[in-house]
Design a protein around this nucleic acid. Structure first.
Lengths: 191, 191
DNA sequence: GCAAATTAATGATTTATTCAAG
DNA sequence: CTTGAATAAATCATTAATTTGC
């Protein structure tokens, strides 16, 4: 696998430098959203938009470019981060609710709620403080048709190639029913 | 309303469960798993166990019996249901997607296209917290119809790596936030 | 008041899970 | 059972806030 023209970002402190040093015009550091941009993005998020499609990202990006430099990826990342951090924020506060698997909270052990996994029905909506229920003008539209995404192996190869060059892990073991799972092993000892 | 109900649990160990413990007078209609039981079962499932053998079921059952009443069949059914419902959940989403999930036309580029798959956070099962109202598709006007090209964290990443370094336009037009914010509906009209 | 030093936010990447299709 | 796709979680890195000493 010959690496092509990708460069690996030096991780860890070490490389600092002052990109954009001169500060003249081209500041290549990172996107720095203007208040208008953030406002719009936030509104969209509040309206319920969580993971915009490429098309939407494109439109949003174009629209926001009026307020300043911006790229599609910035929009994409913004939603990823915002979504994750809102969730994270929530999680920190309410350590309750249902079982909330994972987390491996070491010291989280009680909660005797006869939880029922899967209570998917219409789910009791509207609880979590985020009540920004879609505004009337916002309509949920069933977009067009669909097709299954058929991605060729090409992309996967590239993906692998990228990672192989940076980190060698590919520890796909998947031998049998059990896989490694640190904290879990202890609990599975009885099997 | 201040019925409280759930308050933040101090990280104490507490431990209660055992409601009905030995099945004494408990609502013995059907098995009502305790959190510990669900936790372990979920962990096993996550670890890859999908269809435990009779032997495994027996062991699991025995192990879980310390947390409360349980029978082998409960374990058996749990796995059957969990597996089926996880799949069902996923399918449901895909079906819904039939309306909006456009997909990438992968036959377009030779390299790889960024694709994106929109998945509503209906991860109700054990864990993801789904708070905020999530909307799969947010459309103000029925204009968009054929969308393709989707994005994904990984692929977008590659995409960026491959094609980045371009489109660095400095469209600084408005340097500041001056201008009131029009109503949301108007501001989102571009979508 | 103003910068260097420190801390808080948050943009950008990487890694780990998960479900499904072949 | 292998591999494709798509996240969400975790982490890294840089910019804005702020604190602090002068």
């Amino acid at each position: 696998m010959s690496s092509e023209g990708f460069s690996i970002k030096a991780r860890g402190l070490g490389n600092n430098n002052n990109m954009g040093g001169g500060g003249t015009g081209t500041k290549c550091g990172r996107w720095n959203p203007t208040v208008e941009q953030v406002k719009l993005l936030t509104d969209l998020f509040k309206a319920g938009l969580r993971t915009p499609s490429t098309d939407q990202i494109q439109k949003i990006s174009t629209e926001l470019s009026v307020y300043g430099k911006i790229e599609s990826k910035n929009v994409f990342y913004w939603f990823q981060n915002h979504k994750a951090r809102e969730r994270q924020k929530r999680r920190k506060i309410s350590t309750v609710d249902y079982d909330h698997r994972q987390d491996t909270n070491l010291s989280l052990s009680h909660r005797h709620n006869p939880c029922h996994h899967q209570t998917p029905p219409k789910d009791t909506f509207g609880g979590r403080e985020e009540e920004e229920n879609v505004i009337e003008t916002l309509q949920l539209f069933p977009l067009s048709k669909v097709e299954r995404a058929n991605i060729t192996a090409a992309s996967y190869n590239e993906y692998i190639r990228e990672h192989v060059n940076t980190t060698v892990f590919s520890t796909y073991s998947s031998c049998g029913a059990e896989m490694e799972h640190p904290p879990l092993d202890l609990r599975l000892s009885f099997l």
